[in-house]
């Protein structure tokens, strides 16, 4: 692996300045993904700017919602009482990811920026448009049984691996950041870029920006929410399909609903079509299934990943049915 310089930033402006001083510098959070990628040569930074000690590790209530800093660890986020009360699906999503040791190290900022676990991306001897633009995508004709069914392109079919981001997508999270020119923010909807022909460009963050935190607006519906993740073993594996859902049912009618899917696209997939189909309608298993089908109508599965359609559909029905039953109690 490439020799690299290392510096620990003392404050946010200092971190941004350090990063911008070297075009080959990278921010280092928990290092749970970046360091692995450095070992395999996928990432070759000349310089690491360690931001883990920055004073961005607080979780606070703001206007009925929550705001948490970029260096809050996954463990702390999942354990926070307000997160568990107001957005239980977020706590569940974070706990569904990685292992206890990794969650103690991994941070919110790093989680949002983690790279795909596509096996071709991870192997520098293979072509990959995301890692090496223009080199091709062997997954489309090759091994893709855990690749995207929604929003992919002929250039890349990789999925975003984050569990946390799926719950954040469901709850309209806003990502805040700092640049040399000052602060900015991006709705999660706009944070991840469409794949198109630029799979190597993953987020809309301006160059040199440091994620400072995430804001979750007030969402009463989120109090009854759930994250269900299906993976190829009981823990410590990325999803093959997941659903974050929140449901507010009144008199058998869907008053408000949030739905987002994981492991189906290059980004957490907010299921707005399904939400629209459900809102104002009956909270029945049939309606849940129809709504899932409406969302998945846009899916374009590959030869070996069409199972994700029934998987996601069944997950939507199962999770919304559970939530509806709990609402009725």
């Amino acid at each position: 692996m490439r020799e690299f310089g290392y510096e620990r930033a003392a404050d946010v402006p200092g971190a941004v300045a350090l990063l911008n001083a070297d075009p080959e510098a990278r921010f280092l959070g928990g290092g749970t993904n970046l360091v692995d990628l450095m070992k395999t040569g996928v990432e070759r930074p000349a310089h690491l700017v360690d931001v883990r000690e920055l004073p961005l590790d607080t979780i606070e209530s703001v206007d009925g919602g929550l705001r948490f800093g970029a260096t809050v660890t996954n463990s702390d986020l999942a354990a926070h009482l307000d997160v568990r009360r107001q957005y239980p699906a977020l706590a569940q999503a974070v706990l569904a990811g990685a292992s206890g040791q990794l969650r103690n190290m991994a941070t919110v900022g790093g989680n949002l920026l983690q790279r795909t676990r596509c096996g071709y991306f991870a192997d520098v001897s293979q072509p990959c448009n995301k890692r090496s633009p223009g080199s091709g995508c062997p997954a489309i004709e090759g091994e893709h049984h855990n690749h995207a069914i929604l929003g992919a392109s002929s250039h890349c079919v990789a999925t975003n691996p984050s569990d946390m981001a799926v719950a954040l997508a469901a709850f309209d999270a806003v990502v805040t950041y700092e640049t040399v020119d000052g602060p900015g923010e991006l709705a999660l909807d706009d944070f991840y870029l469409p794949v198109g022909d630029t799979p190597h460009r993953e987020t809309a963050l301006p160059p040199g920006a440091l994620i400072t935190g995430v804001r979750l607006p007030a969402a009463p519906v989120a109090a009854l929410s759930r994250y269900r993740k299906v993976r190829e073993r009981a823990s410590f594996a990325f999803a093959v399909g997941s659903v974050a859902a929140a449901l507010d049912v009144r008199d058998g009618v869907v008053h408000d609903v949030r739905l987002a899917f994981g492991a189906v696209a290059s980004r957490p997939w907010r299921a707005r079509t399904a939400e629209g189909a459900l809102t104002g309608g009956p909270a029945t298993a049939e309606a849940f299934a129809e709504a899932a089908d409406a969302e998945l109508a846009a899916a374009a599965p590959l030869a070996d990943n069409a199972y994700k359609l029934p998987l996601v559909r069944n997950l939507v029905v199962a999770v919304l049915t559970e939530l509806a039953e709990e609402a009725a109690r």
Partner: peptide
Amino acid sequence: AQVGADFAGYHFSANAD
């Protein structure tokens, strides 16, 4: 080549299994 030639790609039972 093998795809996913590491412990992220090659799964075996975790403790929870």
